[in-house]
């Protein structure tokens, strides 16, 4: 077990999952984090889509990294990422048509999500396939975790339910503000603050 936690891949995974968390450390991918977090079901599907596309595109990019000419690498990233995003969009439309409609344009907009381009440029292009896979899995799960936390707070307080199931009694009127984009900013701000306090105060860096 010790050898696992000390391995390089594990360090990369934890780095991108926690210390360089996309949402609260790097503040990337915020647009979708605000837009899809009105309920947990949408957030889960969106988070899984981002994670899936991120892992696949990082792995593929890392595998062909020696072939990519330096000057056209950004075009290459875009082509590969957008191909997988459109595939993910097809899959959602076929298997989860209602959620796909509720997510609206945000699945297609994963193409412009900074997390994907960021991980491709900062990591996948320079590291081995296995390490890129772990790094992108960490980033994706970090994003998924963050939007799930925000969605839980917003859905529970905003409409008194979790995953569409009513949790709070009918006495809970629903805090409408949290359902609005403005409310998302408040929750996001508190989330980033709390996560940074925890990160700085209670955790020692494992480097």
């Amino acid at each position: 077990m010790e050898s696992v936690t000390k391995s390089k891949g594990f360090t990369y995974f934890i780095e991108s999952l926690w210390y360089n968390n996309a949402t609260f450390s790097m503040v990337l991918g915020i647009c979708s984090a605000l837009a899809v977090t009105t309920n947990m079901r949408n957030a889960l599907v969106m988070g899984l889509s981002v994670t899936g596309v991120l892992i696949i595109s990082s792995t593929v990019l890392s595998a062909i990294r020696s072939m990519i000419p330096e000057r056209v690498r950004l075009i290459t990233f875009m082509l590969i990422i957008s191909t997988f995003v459109i595939m993910a969009d097809f899959l959602l439309k076929v298997y989860l048509p209602t959620i796909s409609k509720a997510l609206g344009p945000y699945v297609g907009l994963i193409i412009t999500n900074c997390i994907l381009m960021g991980r491709a440029e900062a990591f996948a292009i320079k590291h081995a396939v296995w390490h890129s896979l772990l790094d992108s899995a960490g980033s994706g799960l970090g994003y998924l975790g963050s939007i799930m936390v925000i969605a839980t707070i917003r859905e529970l307080l905003g409409s008194g339910s979790l995953f569409g199931l009513r949790i709070l009694g009918s006495w809970w009127q629903g805090w409408g503000l949290l359902m609005m984009p403005a409310g998302a900013f408040f929750i996001l701000g508190f989330y980033i603050m709390t996560a940074n306090i925890i990160q700085k105060r209670f955790m020692n860096r494992c480097k």
Binding site: M67, I68, P69, R71, V72, I75, T76, L79, I80, S82, T83, I86, M87, F90, K93, V94
Partner: peptide
């Protein structure tokens, strides 16, 4: 030349796979 060939090949692969996906969809 290397850049052009790389991009042509990559674009072809992406287009073909997306067309196949679209047909199934």
């Amino acid at each position: 030349l290397r850049m052009s060939i790389f991009l042509i090949v990559l674009t072809t692969i992406c287009t073909v796979s997306l067309t196949a996906g679209n047909l199934m969809y």
